[in-house]
């Protein structure tokens, strides 16, 4: 127990900080994923075959390829890609992307693919009458998507978004391979220093369990709050 205490002798404060890092990365990744999906969903719903293809390629790749592989791609390839772009603009020094950015972008890309599928499903399940009604009121497409369709989509997709969030939260453990000090990395460091892996990994599991349970409770509350039609 002493190993988990706060202060110089224990790892409590380090683990607490790592937990905040995990939450931060998860939120960053989920938000980024949501942003991407809001760009991809229109592609998947459009009538153009080419745009459909682009959207489908994105979701197929990032839902079918292991998370670790995506992280390695961005971890090893990220800085050279940025440097390549920078070179075009005449910047020649070495640029290093930090682990936080690599992690949240790679997990965000994966999270975005799942979010895309969730939102697309929700839009498809909305009654055609809603679209017709909005059109008959003379609303522009952008207006009715934002004010009529989007609120309903968010409500309908809440249960599935909750799943995506849980998935994203658990995927953040994989970012530890890039050296970002979140729960998993901190447990690795602590168990290396104290030769007590069982305690620290079990405690890490406990922390993740707390995070997933709390967020599940929160999402359930939201669902209840916005479930006013059915």
């Amino acid at each position: 127990m002493e190993l988990l205490s706060f202060g110089d002798t224990g790892w409590g404060d380090e683990l607490l900080r790592a937990t905040f890092m995990t939450i931060l990365v998860a939120i960053a990744a989920f938000t980024f994923g949501f942003f991407i999906s809001s760009l991809i969903v229109p592609l998947k719903l459009s009538k153009s075959k080419v745009l459909n293809f682009i959207g489908n390629t994105y979701t197929t790749i990032f839902r079918g390829v292991p998370e670790l592989l995506v992280i390695y791609l961005l971890f090893f390839g990220g800085s050279s890609a940025v440097m390549f772009v920078a070179k075009i603009f005449g910047y020649k020094d070495f640029i290093e992307i930090n682990a936080f950015l690599t992690g949240s972008v790679s997990i965000g890309l994966i999270s975005g693919a799942y979010t895309t599928e969730v939102l697309r499903g929700a839009i498809n399940s909305i009654n055609q009458g809603q679209f017709d009604g909005a059109k008959s009121l003379g609303l522009k497409k952008s207006t009715y998507y934002v004010f009529v369709i989007a609120p309903q989509v968010l409500r309908l997709s809440l249960p599935n978004l909750s799943n995506v969030w849980q998935l994203t939260l658990k995927d953040t453990a994989l970012i530890s391979v890039t050296g970002l000090v979140e729960i998993m990395r901190q447990s690795y460091i602590a168990s290396g220093a104290t030769r007590n892996p069982l305690l620290f990994y079990c405690f890490a599991a406990f922390l993740y369990l707390i995070l997933t349970t709390i967020s599940l409770k929160y999402f359930n509350k939201l669902e209840k709050k916005y479930n006013f039609y059915t």
Partner: peptide, 22 residues
Amino acid sequence: FVFRGTPLFVQIFIIYFGLAQL
């Protein structure tokens, strides 16, 4: 509840590194 609430990464480390400690 436990196995779905924690990452697979933690589970595999507990089994591989953790249990070896006992």
